[in-house]
Computed example of a mutant assay.
Amino acid sequence: MSQSDRLTEDENATMRILWDRGGASVSELAIATRQPATTTLNLLHGLRRKGAVERQQAGRDIVYRPRLNRETARSHALGRLLCGDSTTPDNGLGVVVLRESDIDPKDWADLQAEIAQRRKA
């Protein structure tokens, strides 16, 4: 995912709901995120442009389903944290905020070991 394709915190929150539910309508997402439907719809349009969600007709409703899987998103975030990118001045451990529940326990342990190793260097 390029820098312009990275997910914002609001987009990540929306994706977590979609991953958990497998799909949801705009109104369901608006209720779950406690945001106005117009804000939710704008987030979904952005996620569609990034290729993270797809829109499907389900009877009379339009349902948004994740195209980007949770593991791929997690992998991108961890890669940016460990390897850095062009936006981090030292091209090292960038600042990425992740909820501990978003990270597999083994990945979390590996991440902590990598941080400890880099601090010794």
Rank of each mutant, 00 (worst) to 15 (best):
L47F: 04
L18R: 02
E100M: 09
T38E: 10
D10A: 15
T88C: 15
L98T: 08
I62H: 11
R99I: 01
R60F: 13
R55V: 07
L93Q: 07
I31F: 02
S4P: 03
L111I: 04
D10K: 14
E11T: 02
R70F: 04
R6K: 09
K106Y: 09
G46Y: 02
T87D: 13
T87N: 08
P36G: 08
R60H: 11
D5M: 10
L44Y: 05
P36F: 01
T72V: 10
R119K: 14
A73G: 03
A73P: 00
D5Y: 03
V63E: 01
A116I: 12
A37M: 07
I115F: 10
G92A: 15
P105E: 02
L78C: 02
M1P: 11
Q117K: 14
A113F: 11
E54D: 12
Q57H: 06
V63G: 07
L81Y: 04
S2F: 06
K106R: 13
E114H: 12
Q57R: 15
G46P: 00
S2M: 10
D110N: 13
I31R: 14
D110G: 02
D61R: 14
Q3Y: 09
A37N: 07
H76G: 10
M15T: 06
R65K: 12
Y64D: 00
E28P: 02
A116N: 14
P105N: 06
K120L: 09
P66M: 04
L43P: 05
T38Y: 01
V63D: 01
T72K: 06
G84R: 05
P36M: 00
H45D: 09
L93D: 03
R21V: 05
R6H: 05
L29C: 00
Y64S: 04
M1L: 08
T88N: 13
R74W: 04
S86G: 12
W108Y: 15
A32E: 06
S101P: 05
Q117P: 00
S4Q: 14
T88F: 10
L68G: 00
Q56I: 08
L44F: 07
L81G: 00
A77D: 10
A109Y: 12
A52T: 05
S27D: 13
S75V: 07
L93T: 04
I62E: 14
V53M: 09
D102I: 03
A52M: 04
G92Q: 15
W19H: 02
